[in-house]
């Protein structure tokens, strides 16, 4: 058994010895008050089968062995669903892969010997905690502003009481797939969270369960987005291009239609909110 493990270790050591080399420039910032700077590191013996984060792990391990403090970066599930990881790699949120998170990026996508620049998400609403780690609690506050249906536990009708067409359920799922990573904000030249807001508004807006609060949801979530300091959408579609779940900007068009619908129905003086 342990012979197998040794063989495993021997083989991979051999592969790493002939591995790739990169020059990494990594954003170091001790805390929110530190202005921060790019610091260059050499990553050697990198296997093309390593994920980008494993390459960073390796580099950090080496730094620690040398007694240097490692740099901080967020990650958790490392399978592309939790939304915890997120780095701007050579100017692109989540790096060069399409439809992937940073953790699902493999080193074989990079040219051996190249220079890779790694920065955190940058936005006023996402202040840097340390190095490559940012605070995304603004997203939680946007959801708190209406990204739910007000149904207490126990008061739900039978699940099949309301029929929902397959197409409608799929449409809702497309929007609900958002993992809240913040790449949309990071890539937007205006640091706007419009795609994040729109995906939630559409997810609940197309389902019958979301109808009772549909009218105020878009308004309150949007207001919160602005209060948190995100910018405005100027329809460049960078967000959709970097989104690991490939959420379409048609969600934003939907949100815009919701807004117009609200304006139009405001004039008919119907009550906007039926209180809980």
């Amino acid at each position: 058994m342990s012979a197998g493990s040794q063989a495993e270790a021997a083989v991979s050591t051999e592969r790493r010895a002939s591995g790739m080399t990169f020059t990494l420039e990594i954003w170091r910032q001790r805390n929110a008050d530190d202005p921060g700077r790019m610091v260059a590191y050499e990553a050697t013996r990198v296997s093309p089968d390593m994920s980008f984060l494993e390459m960073l792990d390796l580099l950090n391990e080496e730094l620690m062995r040398k007694g240097e403090e490692p740099f901080a970066f967020d990650s958790d599930c490392r399978e592309g669903i939790c939304g915890m990881c997120g780095l701007v790699i050579n100017g692109v949120a989540h790096g060069p892969g399409t439809g992937t998170t940073t953790c699902q990026l493999y080193m074989r996508l990079f040219k051996n010997g190249s220079r890779i620049r790694v920065e955190p998400w940058r936005a006023r609403a996402f202040p840097v905690v340390r190095d490559l780690v940012v605070d995304r609690s603004a997203f939680d506050r946007i959801i708190q502003a209406g990204g739910y249906t007000s149904v207490n536990t126990g008061s739900a009708p039978d699940a099949n009481a309301t029929l929902i067409s397959q197409a409608r359920a799929e449409e809702a799922m497309d929007s609900a797939a958002c993992i809240g990573c913040g790449a949309c904000v990071a890539s937007c030249k205006n640091a706007s969270a419009m795609l994040f807001v729109a995906a939630k508004v559409k997810h609940l807006g197309v389902l019958p369960q979301g109808q009772p609060e549909r009218r105020q949801r878009g308004v309150t979530m949007l207001e919160t987005m602005q209060e948190e300091g995100f910018g405005n959408c100027t329809n460049e579609y960078e967000c959709e291009a970097v989104c690991p779940k490939e959420i379409s900007t048609s969600n934003i068009a939907f949100l815009n239609r919701e807004y117009i619908r609200n304006l139009v129905s405001l004039s008919s003086l119907r009550p906007l909110v039926t209180s809980e």
Binding site: T149, A159, N160, Q166, A169, H203, Q209
Partner: peptide, 22 residues
């Protein structure tokens, strides 16, 4: 069974049949 009811009411987009049932 109650869990499924609750989740559907929250807007969880479970897969559906053509007729609209779960």
């Amino acid at each position: 069974s109650n869990i499924i009811d609750q989740c559907v009411a929250q807007g969880v987009p479970f897969a559906r049949e053509y007729g609209g049932t779960l």
